[in-house]
């Protein structure tokens, strides 16, 4: 039992780091703009499909694909920001309007994926998919270890950026008080566009590393990842980038550890019970506001 628990906790931590990476991009975007990116999971899935295409066409593995995927999604994010978000921010209720607008974007992305790659599941080949690492009597798929490590490094880089660079400090300032930023001479749109690009870069990274953990992708998986992102950021704290790390780990642990005691079919239920309890008793999330 102890071995099973240890296995579940470490697997939960690795999965939690990936979940954190999925949520953190959504939290940056929500924190800076109060924009609810309901297409978050679809953007992530789009990145996974681009990885699949780069693999099928040029033989690149998902990690090699990052060289193309990350700058592409960052620039795409900046363009989408200027096309869509300033108009949403001028509306009377940006949160609801953005929710609806990005719901539309999620449908568009799913349709485009279906159009290009049809509905069949696709697999992204990766040389380490079948390799496991054993530590004593514990076994971990190498793909998940690499995915967890990438997530950890990405989150560490993000925290460094937020606390040590001009743009990062401006992002922290705008998350805390959007109205105060322009009166100090800082262009909120420039910071927001960077943050939106950063959010999509992070979600693209998540899409690339998720195919290391879960190699098979289908066009309708995006909604599930959007829900994961929502759960993670509500657990950790809406708009708090560090909260996404905590929320992701709690979610990953809840799923994996509960699977030791009950059917795996029920393990997501535990995570959602924790989510509902959080909304009822600590709506600001574990870490609260940023």
């Amino acid at each position: 039992m102890a071995i099973l628990m240890t296995q579940a906790v470490i697997s939960g931590l690795l999965l939690g780091l990936v979940y954190a990476l999925i949520g953190i991009g959504m939290n940056i975007i929500y924190g800076v703009m109060r924009v609810v990116n309901f297409a978050h999971g679809e953007f992530m899935l789009a990145a996974a499909y681009v990885c699949y295409w780069l693999s099928a066409t040029f033989g690149l593995n998902p990690l090699e694909s990052l060289v193309v995927v990350l700058p592409g999604f960052f620039l795409g994010g900046v363009v989408i920001y200027y096309l869509v978000v300033p108009r949403l921010l001028r509306s009377e209720d940006p949160e609801v309007m953005s929710f609806l607008a990005f719901f539309g974007v999620s449908l568009i992305i799913t349709s485009v994926i279906l159009l290009i790659w049809d509905a069949d599941p696709r697999g992204v080949p990766f040389p380490f998919h079948t390799v496991s690492v054993s530590i004593g009597r514990l076994f971990f798929p190498l793909g998940r270890i690499i995915a967890g490590a990438f997530s950890l490094v990405a989150i560490a880089c993000l925290l460094w950026l937020l606390h040590r660079t001009y743009l990062g400090k401006a992002i922290r300032a705008i998350i805390q008080n959007r109205e105060a930023v322009p009166i100090l001479g800082i262009d909120p749109h420039r910071i927001s566009a960077f943050a939106f690009g950063l959010g999509l870069l992070l979600v693209a990274l998540a899409g690339s590393v998720v195919v290391l953990s879960f190699p098979s992708i289908t066009p309708v998986m995006g909604g599930g990842y959007t829900v994961v992102a929502f759960v993670v950021i509500v657990l950790g704290g809406l708009g708090n980038p560090l909260g996404a790390l905590v929320g992701g780990i709690v979610f990953g642990l809840a799923e994996n550890v509960s699977a030791v005691f009950m059917s795996t079919a029920l393990s997501p239920v535990v995570a959602f019970v924790i989510l509902i309890a959080m909304i009822l008793f600590r709506p600001q999330g574990l870490l609260g506001r940023f």
Partner: peptide
């Protein structure tokens, strides 16, 4: 042209020094 508000718009989760440096980040 600088501006202050009736309800001060201070960054509450930044330190006082970080608040001071916010206008000169670049």
């Amino acid at each position: 042209i600088g501006r202050t508000f009736q309800v001060p718009k201070v960054f509450k989760r930044l330190t006082v020094m970080e608040n001071m440096l916010a206008p000169v980040l670049s």
